[in-house]
Design a protein around this nucleic acid. Sequence first.
RNA 1: GCUGGAGUGGCGGAAUGGCAUACGCGCCGGUCUCAAAAACCGGUGUCCUCACGGGCGUAAGGGUUCGACUCCCUUCUCCAGCACCA
Length: 825
Amino acid sequence: MPYTTQEIQRIEAKWQKFWEGQKIFNVRPDPQRPKYYCLEMFPYPSGKIHMGHVRNYTITDVIARFKMMQGFNVIHPMGYDAFGQPAENAAIKRKIDPAEWTYSCIDQMRQGLKRMGFSYDWDREFATCDKEYYKWNQWIFIKMFERGLAYKKTSSVNWCPSCETTLANEEVIDGGCWRCHTPVVQKDLDQWYLKITDYSERLLEDLKQLKDWPSRVIAMQENWIGKSCGVEIYFKVKDTGEPVPVFTTRADTIFGATYVVLAPEHPLVEKLIKGDKNEEAIRRFIKKVANESKSARVSSDQKKEGMFTGRYAINPANHEAIPIWIADYVLMEYGTGAIMAVPTHDQRDFLFAKEHKLPLKIVIEDAQHPGVNVEDMTEAFEGDGILIHSAQFNGLNNRKAIEQIGKWFEENGNGKVTVHWRLRDWLISRQRYWGTPIPMIYCESCGIVPAPENQLPVELPAKIDITGEGGSPLKKCKEFVNVSCPLCGKAAVRETDTMATFFDSSWYYLRYCSPKDAAQVFDKKEAGYWMPVDQYVGGIEHAILHLLYSRFFTKFFKDLGLVNFDEPFIRLLTQGMVLKDGEVMSKSKGNTVDPDEVIARYGADSLRLCILFTAPPEDQLEWNDGAVDGAWKFLSRIFSAVERRYRTVDEMVDRAQFDDEDKALERECHMAIKKVTEDLTNYKFNTAISGLMVLMNSVDKYQFKQENALKQAVYNRALRTVILLLAPFTPHLCEELWYQIGSKETSIIKASWPTYDEKALVQDIISVVVQVNGRLRGKFDVPTHSSEEDLKKIVLADEGIQKWLSDKPVKRFIYLPGKLVNIVV
RNA sequence: GCUGGAGUGGCGGAAUGGCAUACGCGCCGGUCUCAAAAACCGGUGUCCUCACGGGCGUAAGGGUUCGACUCCCUUCUCCAGCACCA
């Protein structure tokens, strides 16, 4: 039987059926074996799987299968992140129910995943839109509410006019909606938040535990959390004495402050400007800034605008009165919404002061330009130096001064050493239908009351009219909204907002541990066995959003006493995107390659191999049709080698009878085992595969006579090594070949991963490279354990080498045993 | 601006102090064939040379070293994230 498309289809269907029928990948906790939790980011069910899924899940599948063969008890689950706007929009467009649409997408997706031969425990499958799942979203929300971690507040929120819903800060990308890219506007709304900021310190601190996460993801999270240590300094309004706290990380420059700036939205502004002769003009300015979109306001090329309030503030360090301004470059959301401006040592303040002719005062000496005049400065000096014009702190190094001045303020009550964070609380209300209903009830007498636990889930009403316009569809559903208060029984109304879907995906990995448990969010014992996730694989686009939220949830569960670890994902691999013609594959760009079409022609194994071989997993992968051909060719060679030349012979081999060729092939096998094992451990799938190709090249070159039993055995052993090492990559073909060569184990996954023998790697004769003055001049085959003296004799006597020495005295003779000689003359 | 990463043949990429370009794709030549495809064998950085050989070569320049794609310094380019964050 030749290696044909038909044959491959037959083989793949046969083994997929076998795996499913035998439930080969279904697992239960087993205290006798080491566990391994291998997880990929579950897909959004939008239809068929695409190349991005194929890449992500192939990587994870190889790791899972490798660990299985190494004897780990591997849990490898799969499910669907099924709530959310895309499904709702698709349903509106097709005039069908989002549930109907979503479950039909899931069916398609499951079929696609099965055709790839992934090693899932299908009994653990669920979708987040199953009411058995979202019931526990609601339970978690109530637990958070009870602890003050879920709360409602009115504030300016990000609003996507196209999706007609609010967005979390993390969902605003370049000033636009993360899904539809429509520019986001600010709107004052009463919304539900999760107090993720209570966990800022832990979220930052525990990043240190994540030694096996990519450094860029760690950096992005650090950046996003944005800890900044500084001092809150209490300025006071002249005459009224009203406090104006400002936040600064540069307390060392306090004696150089020449004005104070408030954000236009600052609550104090109204009081300050009342009665000022410019009152009307200032109000107009505030209004103008308020109407600007945030992205326009923060664009760096725009000129900083501001106005004098007519009032002064007293600097607590030197009791000087300095003018209070308002300006668009100060943001209410950060720090105290007020700053002290030090134009000489802060570039933004410098530009603003020059623009508005405000005074400058140098307080740190620039060692490069000592004694420079303020008039001559062309930019702020932001470097380090010695303090001047700073009273008792003169002569101090400014780094030291930051600390000492902070202390001084604390002692005399003029300030406080504090920390400010960039991280904001997480806005989770969405004014959409297809999500988990927030399980809250509003009662006129009792206020906000959670739905009673025994009434969960608060079910999403089915088959209601969704138009995508005019706000939340649930609001219009009377049967849903009207309810009696669980406390007093009086008529009350339900919350009609649904949860952001990132809530759903923040804990699904815990649910996989006991997916059918109807009595609790997850089984503590099962999760205790399987968690944390040993290997997580997914796209870099979730570096902040999903990964930060999941870390937050895990810490919350720890506080509830449900888990005993701080971090959910020990090791993280962020796979690169799949490109076509230099651009990310996407339906809208029309540059997609359908995995189904590739599978139909080459089979899933070739697709898997090609995707792993073409690029390292973290790198972008430029799709190239030719690469699948290459993978196919390689598999075809193995297939033919087994088919044509593999013979069942007595496996007992007598090494004493090995000739050089036999020894060489056996050594190649051990080298390949070493290489593939190490590369798989380090996610280097591309070089692992190249190692297998090298071995296969040797196998093909190995000459033997069919009737020579010893040679046949050596050959068989090499081929068997190839099949075992290749099994995680191309499981269908390897199962089939494993079966054909008459192995005893039912599935190759139950066979043990081959091990290598260091001793078998040693050669009798090795090739030593000879350099003269660091340049390659020859190669010598010498016995492996030759001494330096032996080599000196051989090398220096050689004519080819002598030519380069040209009778000059040998200054040094460097010898790396078994590798290299360098002669310095 | 800050943070993280990258720069190697025609292409994807390998080598993290010791033979630069493993492995694969593509291309060229050959075997087989009436022919083609497939398969198999050989070649394939660049310059000089009939050849044997040799010079040059990992973004650019400098340094450390017997020896540098690899380490250090300077510069350039590209990708990604964050960005009036006080």
